[in-house]
Amino acid sequence: MVANWVSFNVIDTERQDWARGWTALKRFTEREGHARVPYGHKEPPGPYPLGQWVAEQRRAYRAGQMTGPRARRLEKLGMVWSLADERFQENLEAARAYYEQHWTLCAPRSAVALDRPVGQWVSNLRRPGALDGHPEWKAALEEIDPDWNPAWPADWQRHYAALRELVRDEDQADVLPGVTVHGMDVGQFVQRNRQHTVWTGLMDEQRERLEQLGITPLPPEQQTPAKARKAASGAFERGIAALAQYKARTGSVGPISRTHTEVLPDGTEVKLGVWIMNQKGRRAKLTPDKLQQLAALGLNWAAE
């Protein structure tokens, strides 16, 4: 008799109350498309205190007081047991979208992707202790970008990632100042890091990354700005000669593959595709005489 009384007045009532909450959550998810119920929300008709009921289910789940069948029924409705995990996954999708466009998660703090402040979010996660207790978050970020939290400045990593993508199919990063990617002057980045005083101040891992792109420190005789300008001038003349030779042989000047190398009569190799890209990137800094030479060979953008 006692068992029957308990079953009827306690257990069955509890089951009915749980079923009532599940039904209200089902109505909510069908209407709203998610199961993120605000704590103060009351679901009509009634109104039923659905927000409080959902919070109680989360508490029971964390305490190990919820049966497997109930947990699975709630999960089928899209139940999120941890709101922090849900927010992380939503921001992670935005971070992934940013990486696909910029090849790095070292985004500036103002960066936005999928309408989310991904730059500030990743910056916050770099703070000491931000990932304590969440090794799975750290693993998820590293899966997208192993260098998401480098030991060197994030700005350096942004420039390096842009340079790496720019010269992906090249033997070395032969990029002149003025070539920009996403508004960053990667040519200037190369020139600056090749300077002896800067190179020696880099971490070993930074130098290794640059060397993998074929970037090495300048020899002592090329450290002075005057000699560097002279070398750049000679590079332009060699590029013009290579472009003229290519046009004479093929009858046109494009499109030229970024990987194409033209060999001059004296044996000098000119990466013509990269050279043209460099000139176009620094068009605003070219002298009228140089622009005229480029336009005369058929590069229409030089005459615009």
Rank of each mutant, 00 (worst) to 15 (best):
E211N: 08
T197F: 14
R59V: 05
R249I: 04
V270S: 00
E269I: 00
A232P: 04
R73D: 11
R72G: 01
N193F: 03
N9C: 07
A241S: 13
L218M: 05
L213E: 08
A284F: 09
G129Q: 03
A154M: 01
Q89S: 13
E100Q: 11
Q101R: 11
D85Y: 04
Q279H: 07
A242D: 06
D266G: 03
R194N: 05
V181F: 00
E211H: 08
Y48T: 08
I144S: 07
M1Y: 04
L74G: 02
I215S: 02
G46R: 05
N124T: 08
V186C: 05
Q16H: 12
R194S: 02
P45I: 11
A60F: 11
K138E: 15
T259Y: 10
G201H: 06
N124R: 15
G64V: 10
A241M: 11
V274Q: 15
Y98V: 02
A130V: 10
A232Q: 14
Y99N: 01
G281Y: 00
A111Y: 02
D174K: 07
I215M: 02
W199E: 01
A113T: 06
A71C: 14
Q101D: 03
N278F: 03
H41T: 08
A139Q: 15
V167P: 10
Q89F: 00
A139T: 14
G46H: 08
D145Y: 09
G234S: 10
P150K: 02
G21H: 05
Y160I: 02
W275F: 10
E237F: 01
G273A: 12
E221C: 04
Q222H: 06
A303P: 10
Q16K: 14
H34Y: 01
V6D: 01
G178K: 09
G234T: 06
A140W: 01
A231V: 14
W152Y: 13
W81K: 12
E90A: 14
Q16W: 07
A302V: 14
D185H: 06
D17I: 14
A113Q: 04
T268I: 10
W137I: 12
T13F: 04
G133C: 04
P38Q: 09
A24D: 01
A244S: 12
I276L: 15
P150V: 04
K42Q: 15
E269K: 15
G33W: 03
Q191M: 13
